[in-house]
Amino acid sequence: MPKWTLKDWSSPRQRLTPYLFLLPALIVLGLTVFYPALQAFFLSFTRYEYDLTQPPIWIGFKNFQRLLVDPLFWQTFRNTLLYLVGVVPLLVTLPLGLAILVNQSLRGVRWFRVAYYTPVVISMVVAGIAWKWLYADRGLLNQLLQLLGISEGIPWLTSPSLAVFSVMVVTIWKGLGYYMVIYLAGLQAIPADLYEAAAIDGSDGIQKHWDITVPLMKPYLLLVTVISAISATKVFEEIYIMTKGGPRNSSKTIVYYLYEQAFQDLEISYACTIGLVMFLIILGLSVLRLSVERLTTRRDALSEKLN
Rank of each mutant, 00 (worst) to 15 (best):
V167Y: 04
V170N: 08
G175V: 03
G175N: 15
L176S: 06
Y178S: 09
M180N: 02
V181M: 12
I182A: 11
A185T: 05
A185C: 08
G186A: 10
L187P: 05
L187E: 03
P191H: 08
L194Q: 11
L194Y: 15
A198D: 01
I200D: 00
D201P: 02
D201F: 02
G202L: 10
D204Y: 13
I206W: 14
I206T: 15
H209V: 09
D211C: 14
D211L: 15
I212Q: 04
I212V: 15
V214R: 15
P215Y: 11
P215A: 09
L216G: 09
M217T: 10
M217Q: 10
K218A: 15
L222D: 04
L223G: 09
L223S: 13
V224D: 06
T225K: 02
V226N: 10
S228M: 03
A229I: 01
T233F: 14
E238V: 13
E238H: 15
I239R: 02
I239G: 06
S251K: 01
L258D: 02
Q261F: 00
Q264I: 08
Q264K: 14
D265N: 11
D265C: 02
L266K: 04
L266M: 13
I268V: 13
S269D: 03
S269P: 00
S269H: 02
A271E: 00
T273P: 00
L276A: 14
I282T: 10
L283T: 11
L285H: 00
L288S: 07
L288N: 02
L288V: 00
L288G: 09
L290S: 14
L290M: 11
E293H: 02
R294E: 14
